[in-house]
Computed example of a mutant assay.
Amino acid sequence: MSKLILILAAQILLLTTIASAGDGGDFASTMNPARLHNKEKLTHLRVYWHDIRSGQNPSSIMIQPPIKKYSSTYFGSITMMDNKLTSGVSINSTVVGQAQGFYAGAAQPELGFLMAMTFAFKTGEYNGSTITILGRNTVLSEVREMPVVGGSGIFRLARGHVELRTKLFDKKTGDAIVEYNCFVLHY
Results as ranks from 00 to 15, higher is better:
residue 5 I to V: 15
residue 5 I to W: 11
residue 8 L to T: 08
residue 9 A to P: 00
residue 10 A to C: 05
residue 10 A to R: 06
residue 10 A to K: 05
residue 11 Q to C: 14
residue 14 L to C: 05
residue 15 L to S: 08
residue 15 L to M: 07
residue 15 L to N: 12
residue 16 T to S: 05
residue 17 T to C: 10
residue 17 T to N: 15
residue 18 I to K: 12
residue 18 I to Y: 08
residue 19 A to T: 05
residue 19 A to K: 13
residue 24 G to H: 06
residue 24 G to Q: 03
residue 24 G to M: 03
residue 25 G to D: 13
residue 25 G to T: 09
residue 29 S to R: 14
residue 30 T to I: 05
residue 32 N to H: 03
residue 33 P to H: 08
residue 33 P to E: 01
residue 34 A to D: 11
residue 36 L to S: 10
residue 36 L to H: 00
residue 38 N to V: 09
residue 39 K to T: 15
residue 41 K to T: 10
residue 42 L to Q: 06
residue 44 H to K: 13
residue 46 R to E: 06
residue 46 R to N: 02
residue 51 D to Y: 15
residue 51 D to L: 09
residue 54 S to C: 07
residue 55 G to W: 07
residue 56 Q to Y: 06
residue 56 Q to E: 13
residue 56 Q to T: 12
residue 64 Q to D: 00
residue 66 P to V: 04
residue 68 K to N: 09
residue 71 S to H: 06
residue 72 S to I: 08
residue 72 S to G: 06
residue 73 T to R: 05
residue 76 G to C: 10
residue 78 I to V: 15
residue 79 T to W: 09
residue 80 M to Q: 10
residue 81 M to I: 14
residue 83 N to K: 04
residue 85 L to R: 04
residue 86 T to R: 04
residue 87 S to A: 11
residue 88 G to C: 01
residue 89 V to F: 07
residue 91 I to M: 06
residue 94 T to D: 09
residue 95 V to S: 01
residue 96 V to D: 02
residue 97 G to K: 09
residue 98 Q to D: 07
residue 99 A to H: 00
residue 100 Q to G: 00
residue 103 Y to S: 05
residue 106 A to Y: 00
residue 109 P to L: 05
residue 112 G to H: 03
residue 115 M to K: 05
residue 119 F to L: 15
residue 119 F to P: 01
residue 121 F to L: 07
residue 122 K to E: 15
residue 123 T to S: 05
residue 130 T to Q: 05
residue 130 T to L: 06
residue 130 T to C: 08
residue 131 I to E: 01
residue 136 R to M: 10
residue 138 T to V: 15
residue 140 L to F: 15
residue 141 S to H: 15
residue 142 E to C: 02
residue 145 E to D: 02
residue 146 M to S: 09
residue 147 P to C: 07
residue 150 G to C: 02
residue 151 G to M: 04
residue 152 S to R: 07
residue 153 G to E: 08
residue 154 I to F: 14
residue 155 F to W: 08
residue 155 F to E: 05
residue 155 F to V: 04
residue 156 R to Y: 13
residue 157 L to E: 10
residue 157 L to P: 01
residue 160 G to C: 08
residue 160 G to A: 13
residue 161 H to W: 09
residue 166 T to V: 13
residue 167 K to P: 00
residue 167 K to D: 02
residue 168 L to I: 11
residue 169 F to E: 09
residue 170 D to P: 10
residue 172 K to H: 11
residue 174 G to Q: 07
residue 174 G to V: 09
residue 175 D to I: 04
residue 177 I to K: 02
residue 177 I to C: 04
residue 179 E to A: 14
residue 180 Y to P: 01
residue 181 N to H: 12
residue 181 N to L: 11
residue 182 C to T: 06
residue 185 L to D: 03
